[in-house]
Write a protein that binds this DNA or RNA. Structure first.
Length: 184
DNA sequence: TGAGTGATCGTA
DNA sequence: ACGATCACTCAC
C-alpha cells in the first residue's frame, strides 16, 4: 500500500488555503521505537498572514513565529497551556507567514485497513505523534521519523466540510473565516 | 464550567 | 522581574 512518494516541499509552498484542505485524508507514517504507525489526517486549520488576527504572526516576527516566515515545508511547533504541543506545517513562500494546524488524525491498521483510534483535537494529535520542540523548524519532507504520503487512503471527494476556526474569538472579523477543514 | 500548566512577549 | 495570555483537554 505504501509505495507512494512522500509529499514534497513544493506542495507545501502553495497558499495555505490550497494546502490545508488537500491534506485531508493524507497518510502519515510515524516511525518510533522500531515500529511504524499509520494515521490519516481528518482536520486542519489555516492561519494566513500578519493581517489574519488569529495567526500568531499578527503580532509580528518573533523567535516563536520565525518558522512561519520561512518557505513552506517545515514544522511550526508551540506549547500551549503548558501542556499541549501544537503541530503545524508552514506553507507558502518566504516572508509570507502561513501555517496549518493539524487538529485531528485517525490511526488505522495497515493490514486490515480498519480505524483503530480517533485523535480528535490538536493536543491529542500532537501527543500521539510525539510532537516536541525538537520538531520546530524541521523539514516535513527530509526527516527520519515522520512522513506524509502523497495518497489518500480514503476517498475524500465531496467529503470536506468547512467551519470557523476554534478558540480565536479575539480575532474580530477573522474569527468567522471558514478556514477549518474537516473530513467527514 | 473551571482547573491545570509553562513558554512567550510586552511592559517596567 | 512581572503578569496576562493562550490555535486545549478532562473531570465535574
Amino acid at each position: 500500500m505504501i509505495k507512494h512518494k512522500q509529499i514534497d516541499t513544493t506542495f507545501y509552498q502553495q497558499d495555505v488555503l490550497i494546502v490545508a484542505p488537500q491534506l485531508l485524508g493524507k497518510i502519515i507514517c510515524l516511525k518510533a521505537d522500531g515500529t511504524e504507525r499509520y494515521f490519516f489526517i481528518t482536520e486542519t486549520e489555516a492561519y494566513r498572514g500578519e493581517e489574519d488576527l488569529a495567526c500568531h504572526c499578527s503580532k509580528g516576527r518573533t523567535p516563536r513565529t520565525e518558522a512561519m516566515y520561512h518557505n513552506g515545508g517545515i514544522f511550526y511547533v508551540y506549547l500551549i497551556y503548558g501542556m499541549y504541543y501544537m503541530l503545524n506545517i508552514v506553507t507558502g513562500s518566504k516572508n509570507e507567514p502561513q501555517a496549518l494546524l493539524i487538529r485531528g488524525i485517525k490511526e488505522f491498521d495497515k493490514k486490515t485497513k480498519k480505524i483503530i483510534y480517533d485523535y480528535n483535537g490538536p493536543g491529542k494529535a500532537g501527543k500521539i505523534l510525539g510532537v516536541n520542540q525538537y520538531l520546530y523548524g524541521m523539514s516535513v519532507f527530509n526527516n527520519n521519523n515522520f512522513r506524509i504520503y502523497d495518497v489518500n487512503y480514503f476517498e475524500t471527494e465531496n467529503r470536506i466540510e468547512t467551519a470557523p476556526r476554534v478558540g480565536i474569538n479575539y480575532a474580530g472579523m477573522w474569527k468567522n473565516k471558514p478556514w477549518r477543514f474537516i473530513l467527514i
